[in-house]
């Protein structure tokens, strides 16, 4: 039965769900926006972030350090991948880029399985995230409320980087017109490395944040990657605000559907995407000229 209290609870829950999705989707959309590469290995990087966080937490018992090392490890892996492989693909057709990142995902997942095995790794929420908080109309996990705050802070930071710094200017210019970045004579090689690393780092960070909530196993990245695709297709690929809007729409769709027809939640998510595509093929915040 749907009550007002439950409706509010699910609306809030959708917000948290959405925020978690935005966090993962953001790295994906930035990389695509600037480099024109949809990174199918994004889910695998997210998974590696979670494992890095798990290992760091195991040894230091500090969640802050886990967050830092999760982001740092995946940043490092991202940089290595970009130097070693991805940069050879900038000039190749998008299909090749999809294929190579897709193959990379398999390799990364199976390497982690080889090292850590298939057992889900135990990761607890930090001490400061224990318990529930009373939000008036509902009780909600303290950690997830804090995550909402963390995501907001990260998004603000990212926004400032993108909209208030020179590197951000280049990234945004790249989103709007990749040719222009070349013409401007910017050191493209370094910028691309930086952007790919940034996207990877975002994935890794999201992995650590999610680790106390979901099962940490080698296959954890696959379902979230698909949801992220939905998020950025809804919002418009390459768009900052698109990822935010798409994530929130996806979160609310999942959350509200479970009130009336829980078994249709996933189907509704894809239906929402199809609907938006019919109405607005380029996504909510997408630029029409970019095919």
């Amino acid at each position: 039965m749907v009550t007002w209290a439950l409706l509010w609870a699910q609306l809030f829950n959708g917000l948290v769900l959405g925020a978690l999705l935005v966090l993962v989707a953001m790295g994906l959309t930035i990389v695509f926006g600037t480099l024109g590469i949809v990174n199918f290995a994004h889910g695998a990087l997210y998974m590696i972030g979670a494992y890095a966080g798990y290992v760091a937490f195991l040894h230091t018992q500090s969640f802050i350090l886990a967050m830092v090392s999760g982001a740092a490890v995946v940043l490092l892996i991202g940089v290595i991948l970009e130097r070693g492989l991805i940069r050879h693909y900038y000039a190749r057709p998008p299909e090749d880029q999809i294929l190579v990142t897709f193959g990379l995902a398999i390799v990364l997942i199976e390497i982690v399985r080889l090292i850590f095995g298939g057992i889900s790794r135990r990761t607890d929420e930090p001490i400061w995230g224990n318990g529930v908080v009373n939000l008036g109309l509902l009780y909600y996990p303290r950690y997830q409320v804090e995550v909402l705050g963390i995501v907001t802070l990260v998004l603000i930071a990212l926004y400032l980087v993108l909209y208030r710094t020179k590197i951000g200017l280049i990234v945004r210019a790249g989103i709007e017109d990749p040719l222009m970045v070349n013409i401007l004579g910017i050191n493209v090689t370094r910028t691309f490395l930086l952007v790919f690393g940034l996207g990877a780092m975002a994935a890794g960070f999201a992995g650590v944040i999610n680790a106390p909530i979901v099962s940490v196993d080698p296959d954890m990245g696959a379902p979230i990657l698909i949801q992220c695709f939905v998020v950025i297709v809804i919002g418009g690929v390459g768009s900052f605000w698109g990822a935010v809007a798409g994530g929130l729409i996806a979160g609310e769709t999942l959350s509200l559907t479970t009130m009336v027809a829980p078994d249709y939640a996933q189907v509704m998510l894809f239906a929402a995407m199809a609907f938006i595509l019919i109405v607005r093929p380029q996504g909510l915040f997408g630029v029409k000229t970019r095919q």
């Binding site: 609870a9 699910q10 769900l17 997830q144 979901v214 099962s215 479970t258 009130m259 829980p262």
Partner: peptide
Amino acid sequence: TNNFSSYLLNIANSGADVFINVTFGADAVS
């Protein structure tokens, strides 16, 4: 499903005495 929060909210609001979790594998962990 990797995030069960919406289902769990419904369960938290159901007034139940017992929570019977039938999920399995990674879903059970989450």
